[in-house]
Simulated assay, not measured.
Amino acid sequence: MRTLEEVQATLEIAKLKEEDLQSVTHCLSFGENVSSGDYCLMELDETLCKHIEAGKSLVIRGDKDEHTILCSEDKTYDLKIADTSNLLLFLPGCKTPDQTKEASTDTQLVHAEIWGFSNCYWELKQQRPKLKKLKKLLMERPYEGPTLRTEEAPEQMFSTADLLETIQASKEELVSHLQQIDACEIDGFWRILDFDYEMKLLGHVTQLVDSESWSFSEVPLTICLQELVGLEPKEMIEHCLNCYGRRYTAEDGEVRFSLDEDKICRATAQLLLQNAVKFHLREFQEIWQQSVPEGISTKLDQLKGLALVDRSTRPETISLLRVEDLPEDTLERFNCLFSMREKWTENDIAPYIQDLCGEKQTTGALLTKFARCSMQNGSKVYNSRRPVAT
């Protein structure tokens, strides 16, 4: 190992003034059997540093055919290797100049052993969780009601732990999305109701509301469960109310639900459209209004992200197009949309790209990046920036 005198002699040969340098000099040496593959370096922002320092963990997720991502408890990060022209050294116990400011001004020599080195590191960038796979997995075994439960095999269903092993998302993002897609936990496994069964439950609820002459904003939970328990399990009735209503406690202490008319209208529209390639718009609107409970009004605005109206045809048509059925990747999503329709108005395309926006990103910014704007009959329309296979 070098001595302080040897270091000072080297500085003199290099014609460097000792007073121009830091007072603490690190003398580096390689440990035995050091290899560049011994350690991986990862660049963390302040939030993730505090996360690690608090004793919490980060989890790397992804199947063999998926791009690797890293998750904290509540966020998802893209994980990429970044190369650097400088060799990065791993020195346990090494102190930066800021950490040695209060040390003696006398020249000091610190011997540090290099434990590892690398010319690359893992770079993190926060991204949207990849959740499209979640509903697809759960829909492989939809819950069709209590009468068919004996035929179900537990190994074909998913608990929270199972989903965390499969889905590229943090636990908080996963649970939040399970709630968004109206999944429910049955016997420790997450399930999505079969759509026909879900509509059957909703039909029971709306028929009871009608027969009791209740307001849609004041549906009592207890009476609902008492009246419908002979038809379906209490848990399923309450789950249906949670899906299509907002729970609140009335002044008398009773739990009630305010049913969401827009959700009821959307579900009814999906039921009508799911078996038709296209529907004449006017005919659909008439049947749709007749199909919802009395007192509820249907509006096309309720179908954003669910159905697409084509006003270029005569007569005008409407067809089912669910945003959840579109590709999760941004470029693939735009290619898919432009293969369906060459030109889109912003009002038509916005519901199908809204979920692609980042925290501070707008649909307008996405369109600027992935589409070309032009005027058609006095209206602004968007088409693809590149040829799209149809």
Score class of each variant (00 low, 15 high):
Arg2Met: 13
Leu4Pro: 05
Val7Leu: 09
Leu21Ser: 04
Thr25Tyr: 13
Phe30Gly: 00
Val34Leu: 03
Asp45Gly: 04
Leu48Asp: 00
Glu53Ser: 10
Val59Asp: 09
Tyr77Cys: 04
Asp78Tyr: 02
Thr84His: 08
Leu89Pro: 02
Phe90Met: 04
Lys95Asn: 10
Asp98Trp: 08
Ser104Pro: 02
Gln108Ile: 11
Asn119Arg: 12
Lys133Asn: 08
Leu134Gly: 03
Pro142Met: 01
Glu151Arg: 12
Phe158Asp: 01
Asp162Thr: 06
Leu164Ile: 09
Gln168Leu: 03
Ala169Lys: 03
His177Ile: 03
Asp182His: 14
Glu185Gln: 13
Arg191Ile: 01
Met199Asn: 15
Met199Pro: 00
Thr206Ala: 04
Asp210Met: 09
Asp210Lys: 11
Ser211Ile: 05
Ser213Thr: 10
Val219Asn: 00
Leu221Cys: 08
Gln226His: 14
Val229Tyr: 13
Gly230Glu: 08
Pro233Leu: 00
Lys234Asp: 07
Thr249Pro: 04
Asp260Arg: 07
Glu261Pro: 04
Asp262Val: 15
Ile264Asp: 01
Gln270Glu: 15
Ala276Thr: 12
Leu281Trp: 07
Arg282Phe: 11
Glu283Thr: 12
Ile296Ala: 01
Val309Tyr: 00
Asp325Phe: 10
Leu326Phe: 07
Glu332Gly: 05
Met340Gln: 14
Trp344Cys: 05
Glu346Phe: 07
Pro351Arg: 06
Ile353Pro: 01
Gly364Arg: 14
Ala365Phe: 12
Leu366Thr: 07
Leu367Ile: 10
Arg372Tyr: 07
Val381Gln: 04
Arg385Trp: 06
